[in-house]
Amino acid sequence: MLNFTIRRLLFTIPTLLFISFVIFFILDAAPSDPTGNLPLTIPPDVREKIRESLGLDQPMIIRYLLWCKQFFVNEPLNLLAQWGINIGDPDRLRVISFQTRSPVVDLIAQRMPQTLWVVGMSYVVGVLIALPIGIISAVKQYSWFDQMGTFISMIGFSVPTFFTGVLMIVIFSVWLGWFPSIYDTTLVVDSWRTLGLQIRQMAMPVFVLALFNAAQISRFMRASMLDNLNQDYVRTARAKGLRERTVLLVHVLRNSLIPVITVIALGVPQVFGGAIITEQVFKVNGLGQLLIIAIQGGDIPTVQTLTFIFAVLIVLFNLIADILYGILDPRIRYD
């Protein structure tokens, strides 16, 4: 297993380098202009000077290699310097956002907590409600509970979050006034009252996203349970005189979880990617929103860095899913 992990980790290096180049190439080919949002009164020669100052007059390959140096060398060194380990000249160039002129990594560090709280929480909540629903739906197949579960999953699956989100705002913020419609990032949780406020402002985005996540995962769980319920080993377990609970929650569930856990692990990078649309609807200034604004402003370093980090996470969680699979299923051996 260790061998496999190391081999796979080494293999990710060329994969990720290739991905980063492709992202850079595509961004460069896109007709976006960092000066596009500036006032029209700025004359073209000044715009050209601005572009030059951003380094855009260099050939694409040079800019890519510079980004690689900044991201793969300077940023890690800078991180080490923050922990008190200084290597080389401390005055090195970091990946700087075109729009804000601050380092992209710092921007990401500012945005990360909101995304992890809202999107991450919605994923956790979604998984936690999806698993029992999937299990019960399978065990009591075609019961009213199963029919309801199927119906709600269909809704969660097919109605987009920008619709459910706005609907929730209309109902719970406008009509009932229970929850705020805008997420307040400046809120500092330091008392029960502020914790209550935090929970209230998280409630709607978390619910909207959790519904969407739970819809997918509960269907997976149900299908996987149903697959296993008809297996011969279940009959063996019953013939041994085990309690029905044991049969279902030990024998069937353990087998059914193998594919479901893989699916859950593969979904985690999307959490970091931020739910772009939902963050927009509820004005959560998380990573998804950062990415959208950067794209609109032609902020190539930010888009490049963010997209690359998402790619890293996806590759990483693919590896984690594979390893989990090997741990959960004794028939799978990687050595």
Binding site: D232, A237, K240, I258, L328, D329
Partner: peptide
């Protein structure tokens, strides 16, 4: 079931639970 009447089924390849050890499955009853 399993204590006073024992059962052996047709297909031994699928009648045992693949993710538990033989010892676990034998010790259960």
């Amino acid at each position: 079931r399993g204590s006073r009447i024992g059962f052996v089924f047709q297909d031994p390849m699928t009648s045992l639970n693949p993710v538990f050890t033989v010892g676990f499955q034998l010790m259960e009853p």
